[in-house]
Simulated scan of single mutants.
Amino acid sequence: MKTSKSFVVVALFALFFAGCAVSKNSDGMSLNPTIYYKPTIHQNKTKCSANALRDLLSPDGQVLVTLCESDYKQCLLQGSCFIEDDGKITSYNYYSTKEKIPRFIEVDLNSCPYGYGVRNSCLDPYFSAAADLKYYNAGDVIFIPRLVGAVMPNGEVHDGYIVIRDSGGGVLGANRFDFFTGFFNHLAKQNTLARLGFGDPKNRFEFRLASKAEAQAARARRNYPRLKQSVFEEGRL
Rank of each mutant, 00 (worst) to 15 (best):
F127W: 05
N203G: 04
C81P: 02
E233N: 03
V118S: 13
V107M: 06
L31C: 10
K24A: 06
I35R: 09
H42G: 00
G160V: 03
L15T: 00
G79P: 07
G155S: 11
A220D: 08
Q78V: 10
D86A: 06
C20P: 02
D124T: 08
M152K: 06
T34Q: 08
C20G: 04
D178K: 13
V63F: 03
K202Q: 13
V171M: 09
Y72H: 06
C75H: 01
L109S: 08
V10H: 14
V63G: 02
K2P: 15
N175H: 06
R236V: 05
P201R: 04
C68Y: 09
A129C: 05
S6Q: 13
V22E: 06
K202T: 14
N110V: 06
N25F: 04
N51R: 15
K98N: 02
C48V: 08
Y94M: 02
S70G: 01
G169Y: 09
G87I: 00
F82H: 15
P33D: 07
R222M: 14
D159V: 00
C81H: 08
Y224I: 01
V10R: 15
F232Y: 02
R165S: 07
V231A: 02
Q78A: 01
K45M: 12
V9F: 07
S6E: 12
P59E: 06
A174R: 06
F127H: 10
V22R: 11
Y36D: 13
K5W: 11
I41H: 00
N110S: 01
P201N: 11
T192S: 11
R165T: 01
T66W: 06
Y224R: 10
K212M: 12
N137H: 10
D85R: 08
N185P: 01
K228Y: 12
L76C: 01
S111E: 11
A130T: 03
R195I: 10
K2L: 12
V151D: 00
G170W: 09
R195P: 06
G169W: 09
A131Q: 10
Q78F: 00
H158Y: 08
D85S: 15
A129I: 11
F16T: 08
G199L: 12
A174K: 06
T90R: 01
G168N: 00
C81M: 03
K189F: 13
V171K: 13
S23W: 07
L133I: 08
F232M: 10
A50Y: 04
E214L: 04
D140M: 02
I101Q: 15
T90V: 00
N44A: 14
I162A: 01
P125I: 04
D200I: 04
G117K: 05
Y135W: 10
